[in-house]
Design a protein around this nucleic acid. Structure first.
Lengths: 236, 236
DNA sequence: CAGTGGTCTAGACCACCGA
DNA sequence: CGGTGGTCTAGACCACTGG
């Protein structure tokens, strides 16, 4: 069992994958055509086609109508960068997550902020500043602005029990997000709250989330460089 | 035209996608079954199935055999972080990429390095240090160790013409990679070559690539924080 | 022109879930 | 048990590529 009960298209995919990762078929080399696979595996064309189509979607082969299928030139290094709720992440490591709430309130948006949130200048926005601690050590300074239209109950939330990220996910399902990760030095306030020096490098993530028709939130998350890194991996 | 000549399965996908991203169908809500889509769109089951299967692969819906298809819980922001060849990236921005080669040579690996590369302590390894410039401005300091077994011709390469990444992709097709992104301060050498001050924060990426049975390379890539960021986005 | 991939159909059998 | 999704086939028409 095991390999025997794999679907036919998976067998075909595995066979091709093996020839590629073993180096037998080099980038640019032709991959057997659908007709050839039909003969070799005794499958229908739809099945052979699905195998090749999925390999193309995975970036392992390149297909050109009328020309054929070839081993892809560059296997890009890519990886799913998953941005998660801090609370979830810390708890999963078996550690204790606590939150220090520095500010929860309402403000009038300046021009830049209003533009980011898709609101008029001077519109009411919610503002929160928190520090997240892992086993008592500060790992993230979270400065967040929220669009009241997306999460009207934001100010009532108890952020020591429910993180802002979680509150937003619950009340404003995510449809779109963009982010940028930069290196920076902490502001004076950030350094003080994180318990680091002004000269200690930090990772800063700017994140903007959209829920349906509204921009839900813009946040700046600052991580002490010495205590946090983004990691990931990629497998062919 | 335009939307009219889309394949049927794309029309079905678009229709479902629209209902989800507009917020009309919330996470957990049921998505029309294959049978329902067959009726509504007048397509065959294979076509309806393909639409739902691809949406599931994209993470937009969840399918459970015997139960049905539902809108996925989008409770994590995730996005394809693509790590690309610097040269390609710069050229794509319409800028000029140049390289300053600081070192190309052979060394004996210390214990840590040997372990990373899967070699014995004291084994021969290739070592290169380069600076990549975009329109004459340094954007990346690349310190790389290469396993001779994976790329025997590494020392002969002209890195002003072919970046180390590209050379490795050509001679040692990528099968696996892992990375970590951190914030750090540059070393004295890095600061000097990048034209920044010792106190300027940087992004550092540690990258380890595997090709077939060999670890191909370990690299440390340092980016000036003021000139580079990793960005991405996620769309439902 | 022959060979390739892109799409689509109408049926089929199976495994699974929930009432 | 009926409804669901997972897989598969045999055949079809089309668009594109290359010699």
């Amino acid at each position: 069992m095991g390999k025997d009960d794999l679907p036919a298209y998976e067998k075909v995919k595995g066979w091709i994958r093996q020839h590629i990762s073993s180096g037998e078929w080099r980038p640019g080399d032709p991959v057997p055509s659908e007709a050839a696979l039909i003969e070799r595996f005794g499958v229908s064309r739809m099945t052979a086609h699905r195998a090749l189509r999925e390999l193309a979607a995975e970036g392992l082969v390149t297909r050109v109508q009328g020309s054929g299928t070839r081993v892809a030139q560059l296997h890009r290094i890519s990886s799913q960068l998953v941005i998660r709720d801090v609370h979830e992440e810390v708890v999963e490591r078996g550690h204790v997550h606590t939150t220090r709430v520095l500010l929860v309130g309402e403000e009038k948006a300046g021009a830049d902020l209003a533009a980011s949130l898709g609101l008029r200048k001077g519109a009411r926005v919610f503002h929160s500043i928190l520090v997240h601690l892992e086993n008592g050590v500060a790992i993230q300074y979270e400065d967040r602005y929220v669009n009241p239209a997306a999460a009207p109950l934001y100010l009532q939330a108890d952020f020591t029990q429910e993180s802002p990220t979680l509150h937003l996910l619950r009340h404003a399902p995510l449809t779109e997000a963009s982010y940028a990760i930069e290196a920076c030095l902490p502001t004076e306030a950030e350094a003080k709250e994180l318990g680091i020096r002004r000269g200690d490098p930090c990772l800063a993530m700017m994140r903007r989330t959209v829920s349906g028709a509204n921009v839900a939130s813009v946040a700046r998350l600052v991580y002490p460089g010495s205590r946090y890194s983004f990691a990931g991996q990629f497998q062919a």
